[in-house]
């Protein structure tokens, strides 16, 4: 199996990469880890005439702490996130999420920027970065801009990153000491994508939830924030009844899609189950 022919570019800077995008427009595709794009190209479902590989652009990979956030370069692999002492210390749920993507070999190549830009509706990261209120930094011909996660996922496999822009950084606020986080997923038996995945980040002050942030992936056409669940938790103690009642709200606002892994009814149910599990796990931390 081989992709259709294309020209291959290895820009040395973001600027050069942007110039290539500007020049070739819809005929160009960015290549990061390639673990979504290359299979699509092998099936010839994707046939970009120009492939712009970001691997030679310096500074796009790496994790650092800056101004209360983890700053993760777009080309940082899932394995780098999963194994990063900094991530494990400051935002363990992100490492835990990364560790549930695909398989070890896929995680060695796949990147956070690639995954988020691709916006597969069953990808793992989106739920967690929604829960963590991350921000995406993109660069375009007009310079840098920051996109809040709630504005990032637009529709099926579509993000707010423009066709002439490149996602360069993900900024994830560091989890405070009183923040409990968890990501729970029900994996597809073959692909290991999330049939449903729910991430929860709960701030508890004085025994009550002062901030609840819940992200959902897998069930619908795009990852979404579970606002109903958040509202149901806010100001409450995390007892069983509260958690159950909040979890019941998980399907609200999710355009649940039926497929071989589940009917709308079943996936709707799973959303509640995994919301509950994610909240319970987050509550324990």
């Amino acid at each position: 199996m081989y992709p259709a022919q294309f020209d291959y570019h290895t820009p040395g800077t973001v600027k050069e990469a942007l110039d290539l995008l500007g020049k070739y427009k819809d005929d160009a595709k960015l290549l990061a880890g390639g673990h979504s794009l290359l299979p699509a190209m092998k099936f010839r479902l994707a046939r970009p005439a120009h492939l712009v590989d970001l691997r030679k652009v310096p500074g796009l990979a790496g994790i650092k702490e800056e101004g209360g956030s983890l700053v993760i370069g777009a080309m940082t692999t899932h394995w780098a996130v999963e194994s990063s002492p900094l991530v494990k210390a400051k935002c363990p749920v992100l490492a835990q999420t990364a560790a549930q993507i695909g398989d070890p070999m896929v995680r060695n190549m796949g990147t956070i920027g690639g995954s988020l830009s691709h916006a597969d509706p069953a990808a793992d990261y989106p739920a967690t970065i929604i829960a963590l209120n991350a921000e995406m930094v993109v660069e375009g011909p007009k310079g840098k801009r920051t996109i809040k996660v709630d504005d990032f996922f637009k529709s099926l496999m579509t993000t707010a990153v423009g066709p002439d822009e490149i996602l360069t950084e993900v900024r994830v606020p560091v989890c405070g000491a009183n923040v409990g986080c968890a990501y729970m997923k029900f994996p597809h038996p073959a692909s290991r994508f999330a049939v449903v995945g729910v991430a929860a980040a709960l701030t508890v002050e004085g025994g009550k939830v002062s901030k609840a942030s819940i992200g959902i992936t897998g069930a619908g056409t795009k990852a979404v924030r579970a606002k109903g669940v958040e509202a149901a938790l806010l100001g409450k103690a995390l007892d069983a009844a509260t958690i159950q009642a909040a979890a019941e709200k998980a399907p609200d606002g999710v355009d649940v899609q039926a497929d071989l892994q589940g009917s709308v009814e079943y996936k709707t149910h799973l959303l509640k189950v995994f919301a509950k599990r994610a909240i319970e796990a987050a509550a324990k931390k």
């Binding site: 390639g34 290359l38 590989d53 398989d103 070890p104 070999m105 896929v106 190549m109 692909s191």
Partner: peptide, 24 residues
């Protein structure tokens, strides 16, 4: 990239060589 029969080690990491371009 499900089966892993093509797994090799690239710069210290196990990767699936069917899901990389030689140019990479």
């Amino acid at each position: 990239s499900q089966c892993g029969a093509c797994t090799i080690n690239l710069n210290g990491l196990a990767v699936k060589s069917c899901t990389l371009l030689a140019v990479q």
